[in-house]
Design a protein around this nucleic acid. Sequence first.
DNA 1: CAATAATTTGCACGCGTGTGCAAAAATATC
DNA 2: GATATTTTTGCACACGCGTGCAAATTATTG
Lengths: 346, 346
Amino acid sequence: MKSENGVIGLKSSPSTGYVTADDVATAAGVSRWTVNRAFKKDASISAAARAKVLLAAETLGYVPDLRAASLASDHSNLVAILIDDFANPHKLVMLERLTRVLRGRGWDMMLVNTLDRDDAEPALMNARRRRVDATILIGIQFDDEVLEAAHKAQHFKKLIIFARSSENKDTISISVDDRAATLEIAEYVRDRGYKAPFYLAGPRTSSAHLSRKETFLDFWAKEFGVTCDSVAVPAYDSILAADIISETLSNKPENQRPDIIVCENDALALGVIDAIRHRLGLRVPDDIAVIGFDDVPQCESPNYRLTTYRQPLMDMANYLVDVLESSENSQLDKTFIGRLVVRESA
Amino acid sequence: MKSENGVIGLKSSPSTGYVTADDVATAAGVSRWTVNRAFKKDASISAAARAKVLLAAETLGYVPDLRAASLASDHSNLVAILIDDFANPHKLVMLERLTRVLRGRGWDMMLVNTLDRDDAEPALMNARRRRVDATILIGIQFDDEVLEAAHKAQHFKKLIIFARSSENKDTISISVDDRAATLEIAEYVRDRGYKAPFYLAGPRTSSAHLSRKETFLDFWAKEFGVTCDSVAVPAYDSILAADIISETLSNKPENQRPDIIVCENDALALGVIDAIRHRLGLRVPDDIAVIGFDDVPQCESPNYRLTTYRQPLMDMANYLVDVLESSENSQLDKTFIGRLVVRESA
DNA sequence: CAATAATTTGCACGCGTGTGCAAAAATATC
DNA sequence: GATATTTTTGCACACGCGTGCAAATTATTG
């Protein structure tokens, strides 16, 4: 056994405080490359050597340095998740699923808070500086303009839009099939005999057609020849939704009041329920029914019991990792089908 | 102007696809070191050179590689946040504040989902492999046993417990002053004339004394000579809290019913309000009042209007960054004082 | 304008690992 | 038991940037 610095059993580089593969190599009596192979999954190494190395690593407290590995191999097993709109509780659910699935399959993630639209570019920059393998966008502020600017420069290996559809060609979109989901909701509304639905939309996203609102309104127009009213809330915020819906409805005479309010997501729907009860003094669902989208945890609360549409987040997250591990870079868009969760609100 | 590879204006290393400082250097007609200095804040570089470099970098689309920088300098400006209990909506609030403050001050963060207690060690390992500058623990599953094992091996530069007190010496704890907070709550309960409080605790954390529950019970015992009843919920979960509190209270004769339920946090309190109304058929606060802790967004909802204690999360997050930027490694524990937010639930 | 001080720039070496290939060792084949 | 085959191991070089120092340039002073 040779020792590179003339001392046997001592760390050769105590300056940084970290144990390196070289330290383990001398301790185990093998070369550094064998050490690193012991930590690689399908590496060409004998079982005996691997055991010897892992034992030495264990006692010395060595773990491979992923910065160096990434630098040398040019893939980091790191993704950046850019997320805005922390006010929406569904974000917490998505984060839980994503972190769980990603980590389970060997990926780490950076979380980047994207404050507002102008902040999108610096936020994307943060991801770029770490040379992440993919950048995942979750939120509403990433419009086509930002996306094209970002990808035109070829600065991103993979740019993934999660839980929102996008028609941008340089982008991979993993989302629920909004059209199918909205049609299922619309048919449910029809079949339960509601006659005067009202649609509460969220902030306008970039791609106007094929949106949930358009789909619902189209369906209703074709089915009954009646235009369904709608209003847009400028943010996915319960309080704001409550303000807007109560103002909208208190102006209407009672016989023009909707019998159900279909909301673009739960954040809005929960605010709507609050408004119906506490501002308008009406009952849910007896006077006005409510339907949401996402199935956030609060939907279970006996206060809300919100009927809503649940996205298959685990499937979507797993597919996301499939995309990460794929060498393809296009034609990876995929939509998923969720299911309507019927509770008492509609 | 020399060109290192004999070609002027062409990228010298097109293999990786990334633009390197060398590319910018040849484009700007300076050395690579001048390029990197242009991106360092207090570097010794002339204004003219910096402008020239930044222009070239802009057109070529160069941003410094933080993996390489970290490897060379042995500090990464990256922290890992280990978080369990994604069910608690307060976690989303904390994440928003932390990500905002950290990014604003030049730090990136890795998010690691710690599934359960046995998962703590692999989760910590994930942070170690990236050589993060600090590991921040937010959650309940990091008991003293885990902490000591983690730090005894000296594997972490800084181990920070955020929003929870800890007496572990190898650890930096940044939290609200639980004792002061609970006393403020207790005095409020007393001053509003409540006579029969009930304390609803969460899962048992490692350090038993000085906890919120102990503080409240001690206060009440000293003040009135009466022991205040309490029950513990094994998870910070609204539904579970509702189950347990309704079971506990439905067994009691009406004259032994508490007039206020003090909860260890909002997740429990919101469930308690649901239970009081929908399981027990009583009113809040007329029959039973409720107090929470954290001030999650839902407290604002007209359904809840929860009186609660708000932690100064922005101050705490900023102090966290102070700690990151400090060269000290001990004596950095700090507690903060929040404030009671009075609404209608108590 | 010369001499000195201050500022700016260039460079050798190191950070810890991956890649592809060749040498060495172990195993299989006749 | 000798050769062919497979498995395992070692190695030179590269990845992109930071550090500390010395050389070159610019600014200051009398």
